[in-house]
Nucleic acid binder design. Structure first.
Lengths: 223, 223
DNA sequence: ACATGTGAACTGCTTCACAGCG
DNA sequence: CGCTGTGAAGCAGTTCACATGT
């Protein structure tokens, strides 16, 4: 076997919060690299990432020993390690389902393409939309989704459909064999355990802010 | 004292996860009300909201006793209570800063207006954009932001600017007196403790999905 | 009989603090 | 001597289980 860098694989389960922070560290490291930094300590990584140095070290330690005592972490090395851990070494094929405002905006979101997420299909059930191009990808009819997926199964479906259709669409993409869903519809999705769902509910986040403001106006400590 | 429904105010600190679930329950209750349900039990509320009945009861118990033993919760009553708790009884004035694809999409996002979040200003530093209308609101120059905010301070600033400008823009809206920021830029924001920030990082969520897929392909239990 | 409300137990994430190594 | 890596301690959020009320 060649020098395939053994992908670090902990036996223990890793908390979702840990994975989120790993992504965050990767972003901080990108900036650090852009500034020409060779090496970075857990203290600096923590400050820029909005956490603590112990947390950084603990997070990384789940996957191996990447640092050098007395020196810190080599920026380039850690970037590679994190990309491996997060599965960003490859390209992920993505369907966008729902070509409304949010769906259309996401197609050309650079944060996706930069990390290897490639939009290979956009679907909408509005005949007015079908046929149009978005960022080089043609909008296809929802009716074609299963057929297309059977030919070349995407890894992830991004759902940007109205809340009332979200479950039905989720059922369809699951039936088509897709095993990961990113849900932008403000509705909880029920899927089999073999499918992973992440929901981004923007209204919910705003309501969290409203709550924070109300509590603060009621004289609560910012904590 | 009249029947002013005393806004429930726990002394204890409430976890962010709890607040998120309260928002979620509100959504489930809306659906339940639409279906004509008078009353709902913690079991049903949990199923539809993707959690457990004990969790539902615990979450609500922080703010008071809203249920009737043997019957469950009155849907209409609980909706009102949750709206009060979350601060959704009033209108919240929102600035959208950054009129790119995502910012434009958010302006007309119904999930916002439905809960009383009103966009009162849209700002962009691209002269091409300034003057255009988005959903009835004119795009203004970034240069006017401080001036406008001094006249009528918005409650929340939604940041949809490129990552590299996010911190500078955050500094400006904070200096202008805004105390809550919803950050869509893929960059961690540093603000004084008197300001509340929520970040929605879409690339980060996708990376979480990628990680889940990689782990699964490596033969991990779905958990 | 049914479903809430809640102390107590439990689980697991975070923080601490320091031994170990460059 | 500085900074990592990590057991141990601490703490917060979740789950359990049952007393209580209708």
């Amino acid at each position: 076997m060649p020098n395939t860098p053994a992908l670090p694989s902990p036996e223990k389960h890793i908390a979702e919060s840990t994975v989120r922070r790993l992504s965050l560290y990767l972003r901080v490291l990108d900036q650090a690299a852009a500034r020409g930094l060779q090496t970075i300590s857990s203290v600096v990584l923590a400050e820029e990432g909005g956490t603590t140095s112990a947390q950084v070290r603990k997070d990384l330690s789940f996957f191996g020993s990447f640092g050098k005592r007395g020196r810190g972490y080599d920026v380039a090395e850690l970037v590679t390690a994190l990309q491996d851990i997060l599965g960003l070494g490859r390209e992920w094929k993505v369907y966008i389902v729902g070509a409304g405002k949010i769906g259309s905006a996401l197609v050309s979101y650079r944060g996706f393409s930069q990390r290897g997420f490639r939009v290979v299909g956009i679907y909408d059930n509005n005949p007015q939309m079908v046929g149009r191009m978005l960022d080089g990808v043609g909008i296809r009819s929802m009716a074609q989704l299963e057929h297309d997926a059977a030919r070349e199964l995407p890894d992830i479906a991004v759902l940007t459909v109205p809340a009332e259709h979200a479950q039905a669409v989720a059922d369809r993409v699951v039936a088509a064999g897709i095993r990961a869903i990113m849900n932008f519809a403000p509705a909880p999705l029920h899927v089999p355990p073999s499918v992973t769902v992440k929901s981004v509910n923007m209204a919910l986040e705003l309501e969290g802010l409203a709550y924070a403001l109300v509590r603060r106006d009621a004289g609560e400590p910012p904590r």
